[in-house]
Design a protein around this nucleic acid. Sequence first.
DNA 1: ACAACTTAGTTGAGGGTTCAACTATTCCCC
DNA 2: GGGGAATAGTTGAACCCTCAACTAAGTTGT
Lengths: 160, 160
Amino acid sequence: MTGVTDAQQHAWRELVMATHLLDEALDRQSQRDGGMPHAYYKLLVLLYESPGHGQTMSGLAAQLRYSLSRLTHAVTSMERSGWLRRSRSADDRRVQTVSLTDAGVTVVRRVSPLQASEVRSRVFARLSDEQVNQLAAIGSAIVAGLDAGPTERDSDRLND
Amino acid sequence: MTGVTDAQQHAWRELVMATHLLDEALDRQSQRDGGMPHAYYKLLVLLYESPGHGQTMSGLAAQLRYSLSRLTHAVTSMERSGWLRRSRSADDRRVQTVSLTDAGVTVVRRVSPLQASEVRSRVFARLSDEQVNQLAAIGSAIVAGLDAGPTERDSDRLND
DNA sequence: ACAACTTAGTTGAGGGTTCAACTATTCCCC
DNA sequence: GGGGAATAGTTGAACCCTCAACTAAGTTGT
């Protein structure tokens, strides 16, 4: 008795398909407009919104929920592309501070309106204001459920 | 004037984070319980639910919204793993029919309850019945907006 | 002050996905 | 019935991500 209702089953399938299509659409658009995967673009945007357009590797990884390894590969690649630069911190020499270059700032400013327009026309055009609020609530519940790794799976005390 | 409201912005960020965490969680779980990425598991499930546990490449690709190339690579890999088998159709020799092996059936039956339990405890445990219905509606609106590729992007007649 | 531990980040191998080019078969139709 | 065009699927290279092992620098306890 796994106890998943039909309504849950249906919602689940829609959700999984929606996330699949969303990921594809985002990647394709970031690739087309910015020449990078969406995961990289999110990193640029986060840097853009950070004080001084810069942050440490660990800080970025924590906010994006990327592994440090993934972030290292990403930063290495984007550094080659000229969008950002690394610099070792003076007081703690393990720490790398990553910051946007001018080219990085430029690309964010160029791509983000395109991204916004696409999001608006392909997603929000079909949702009522009420659904937008529902989506925010549901999204944050899902984030809460998935964030911070696998806890107890078998014991499962939450809902018996 | 990109015209994205604050509420939309907020909902968007929750949605993007939720899909990111969801993808990661699904992949990690499929990898742990079934030794394959979630995209592969979805393919097995679709085959499992198909008449005779079989379908053509194009049929699978269409229902999963995978490219044929992706599907070819996936099927090649899963054939090596022994979960499915290809066979060329007799009447149209371009067509490949893919079908589950006994091992494939077994792995679906073994993994799916684990998957369901995880989904229930990590996602649906935090959503009310009403939110489940809202999620289904929102998910299907998003699928509708993203399915069937980029149409007009600049003209954007839907909402002016 | 030295060893053990923790924190910050890197590396490389392995596997998955995309994209563009390609083969093979069937359809259309004149 | 033969020459395009469409359909079905494959291939290989490039790129991204994961995982496990690793280096380097700081922290702690004694």
